[in-house]
């Protein structure tokens, strides 16, 4: 799979409250509504300017904080194709893979990527390309890759339960 998009670059510790504020978590359930609140306390231009296929780039401990899955789905619903970070908070990382959002830990690429530039991710070759060069990232474990390939955990479980 080849993904390409512009990089929205943020710093370390991008937490779940700035990805998707907790005050909306029990009442905002519509897809378009969830999308509308993404990153609203950090970068109000994100939801107005983001384009299909764009990539969110973050520093260390991306997605730290709550277990809320909307921190992932609010990005997916805005067309984000992948998140590249120096490291991920573990629940965000699980939620991303379990929702079919590619989450790639690659500190070298993060250091090299310039905000706003176009980057390309090759999931087969496991590389990230930006103006400064090409950076390899480690493969996912086979069992977890099975979930991503199925299109996420729900699809994976449906298959396991032999549902249509």
């Amino acid at each position: 799979m080849l993904l390409a998009g512009r990089a929205w670059k943020y710093g370390d510790n991008v937490n779940t409250d700035i990805l998707f504020p907790g005050k909306y978590t029990y009442t905002v359930t519509e897809r378009s509504e969830i999308a509308r609140h993404a990153l609203e306390d950090l970068d109000p231009t994100f939801v107005t300017d983001v384009q299909q296929g764009d990539v969110v780039v973050g520093g260390r401990n991306f997605g730290c904080g709550s277990s809320r899955e909307q921190a992932v789905t609010c990005l997916l619903y805005n067309g984000v194709s992948a998140v590249v970070a120096a490291s991920f908070s573990r629940i965000f990382y699980r939620n991303a893979l379990n929702n079919g959002l590619l989450a790639i830990a690659c500190p070298q690429a993060v250091a090299a990527i310039v905000a706003g530039e176009s980057i390309a991710i090759d999931t087969e070759q496991q590389t990230i390309r930006c103006a400064a060069g090409e950076y390899p990232f480690p493969p996912l474990s086979a069992s977890v890759m099975g979930i991503v390939e199925a299109g996420g955990l729900v699809a994976y479980v449906k298959r396991k339960l032999a549902l249509p």
């Binding site: 379990n98 929702n99 729900v154």
Partner: peptide
């Protein structure tokens, strides 16, 4: 864990 995981 996340919500999809609890459902699972």
């Amino acid at each position: 864990i996340g919500r999809s995981e609890v459902a699972t």
